[in-house]
């Protein structure tokens, strides 16, 4: 039988446990830390959470995180409108930005395809991507999904989806070992991967 704490504390443990990578033990440790912390420190955390939910939204163009209707990249007039890099998550976009190698536009899919998990194209922003590409301007699409089975499935699908548009479609590959997450790649590896991208479709 688990020990039941006073209910506000229970509630905090419950919500913390829903965070990715946080189990029961960690949730309890975090909750007790916050209980002992100064009111000021706890409020700072609470306010930061509220602020992020109120001020950060999804860019209406590329689905990156944004503070306004469009993200800073979409608003930047110096970015090259003829190149578009397609990534799984906003984290991957940040990783590629850190390399400083890429100066074009992005599109964030917000997920991947997975036959074995039954995740299809309606669960990513593929339709929005196609609409953006149809509206013109982009000459090359770089598929920068993760080099694992889900990322490959997604890239294979997108390559055929956009093939009728007659654009140059490339896939990043060189330098990235299969099975890893883009988010954890170091700048040199990721930069080289972008330089060594290959034709697809």
């Amino acid at each position: 039988m688990a020990i039941r704490y006073a209910s506000p504390l229970n509630r905090l443990v419950d919500v913390l446990m829903r965070l990715p990578g946080v189990g029961a033990k960690t949730a309890q440790r975090l909750a007790f830390y916050l209980l002992k912390a100064s009111r000021e420190e706890a409020m700072k955390l609470a306010e930061a959470i509220v602020e992020v939910k109120e001020k950060i939204r999804m860019c209406e163009r590329c689905h990156n995180i944004a503070e306004e209707e469009q993200c800073v990249i979409c608003q930047d007039p110096t970015r090259d409108g003829s190149m578009m890099c397609v990534v799984e998550e906003a984290n991957d976009l940040l990783a590629i930005e850190r390399t400083g190698t890429f100066k074009g536009q992005y599109h964030v899919l917000q997920g991947t395809l997975s036959p074995i998990d039954g995740r299809g194209p309606d669960q990513i922003t593929a339709k929005e991507l196609l609409e953006r590409l149809r509206s013109g301007g982009v000459k090359e699409v770089i598929l920068a999904t993760n080099p694992n089975v889900e990322g490959e499935a997604t890239a294979l699908y997108l390559a055929r989806l956009i093939a009728p548009l007659g654009l140059r479609v490339t896939r990043i590959a060189l330098g990235l070992p299969v099975g890893g997450d883009l988010e954890y790649a170091d700048e040199v590896t990721l930069g080289r991967a972008l330089d060594g991208r290959r034709e697809m479709g």
Partner: peptide, 16 residues
């Protein structure tokens, strides 16, 4: 650590 780019498992644990 399997998802780290420099994991000792490399890409060996991929599906199939």
């Amino acid at each position: 650590g399997a998802r780290r780019i420099r994991s000792r498992f490399g890409g060996s644990l991929e599906l199939f």
